[in-house]
Design a protein around this nucleic acid. Structure first.
Length: 294
DNA sequence: CGCCAGGTTAGAG
DNA sequence: CTCTAACATGGC
């Protein structure tokens, strides 16, 4: 049960992370209790339920379902570093943003806010598909049904923790089963199709690692159901390309509309133009704009 | 009730 | 390359 400690990097505010993690009461893939996050993950093939909090300027990770095995300790540290993007130096972003009229007030208000990632590429793609063209509240409803029906469950002290469904399970689902969960025909087909792409080996995190943003995007877009928005979203949340961002995102457009006090949403051309100023930090610019929507 | 939502595809021009 | 219809349904 010996906890593992991670030093907190500069420019990191755990409160913002917690706020993000609490944004939907329907979220099943982690729990927030007070200032503590609890999450179940598979590490080295074993389910590990860990809890995470801040103590004396360090992140403390401890196991909730028994001891960490030796190789779990480094895996869980790597996981948390990846999940909360602790490795990125935000100073250059803040320097750039401080000179920009749109971002300046945002980076001041949300200093230390970092991108909460999705280390599981399959989860990231499916979650993006669920969120396509519907409101977030409903997307969470769909995800909740999907996760309770097909995800792995880990029971600890009368609490059920869920792990996102795996591609091999999802690839065997019949579309009708998902329609019963109120997926649209399109979402059902895309979800199953993405799972099959993983099972066949056509797509994997390993296969995409190290590619340029454009090359990785091209690979992802070969999957039916993964368009530009979804590919960029996954590349931002899973691979953390600093320059990946969902250009077509409705929320992003609304944030810009609000910040610029426009009557209607900006054109794609205008969004492109604005983001030219954020070169190299598009993902973080998007994060702070999303955050401005509250 | 109407509009919109963290879009994508296929087809036409 | 750009534009459009169809998809499909809850939330506000």
């Amino acid at each position: 049960m010996t906890p593992v400690h991670i030093p907190i990097p500069p420019e990191f505010d755990f409160e913002h992370t917690l706020t993000f993690l609490k944004r939907s009461p329907k979220e099943l893939l982690h729990r927030v209790e007070g200032n503590c996050v609890i999450k179940a993950v598979e590490l080295n093939g074993r389910p590990v339920v860990f809890e995470l909090s801040v103590e004396n300027d360090r992140l403390v990770i401890s196991s909730r379902n028994g001891q960490f095995f030796d190789d779990d300790r480094s895996a869980v540290v790597a996981y948390v570093n990846d999940w909360f993007d602790l490795g990125t130096n935000l100073k250059p972003f803040y320097t750039m943003a401080g000179k920009d009229d749109i971002l300046k007030p945002l980076v001041k208000a949300y200093h230390g806010y970092r991108i909460v990632g999705q280390p599981d590429l399959f989860e990231s793609l499916v979650w993006a598909v669920l969120g396509q063209q519907i409101n977030l509240a409903f997307a969470y409803t769909l995800k909740g049904r999907f996760v309770t029906t097909y995800g792995r469950q880990v029971h600890v002290n009368n609490v059920t923790h869920f792990i996102f469904p795996r591609p091999d399970v999802v690839s065997e689902i019949k579309p009708e089963e998902l329609l019963a969960l109120q997926f649209s025909r399109q979402k059902a087909a895309y979800t199953i199709n993405i799972a099959r792409a993983f099972v066949s080996g056509e797509v994997s995190k390993e296969k995409l690692r190290g590619l340029t943003l454009e090359a990785a995007k091209e690979e992802l877009r070969k999957i039916k159901g993964v368009g530009n928005w979804t590919a960029n979203y996954a590349l931002m949340k899973t691979f953390r390309y600093p320059d990946a961002f969902p250009l077509e995102d409705a929320g992003l457009h609304n944030a810009l509309k609000q910040q610029l006090r426009l009557k209607s949403k900006p054109s794609l051309q205008r969004v492109k133009k604005i983001f030219k100023n954020y070169r190299g930090w598009e993902a973080y610019a998007t994060l702070y704009l999303w955050k401005s929507l509250g």
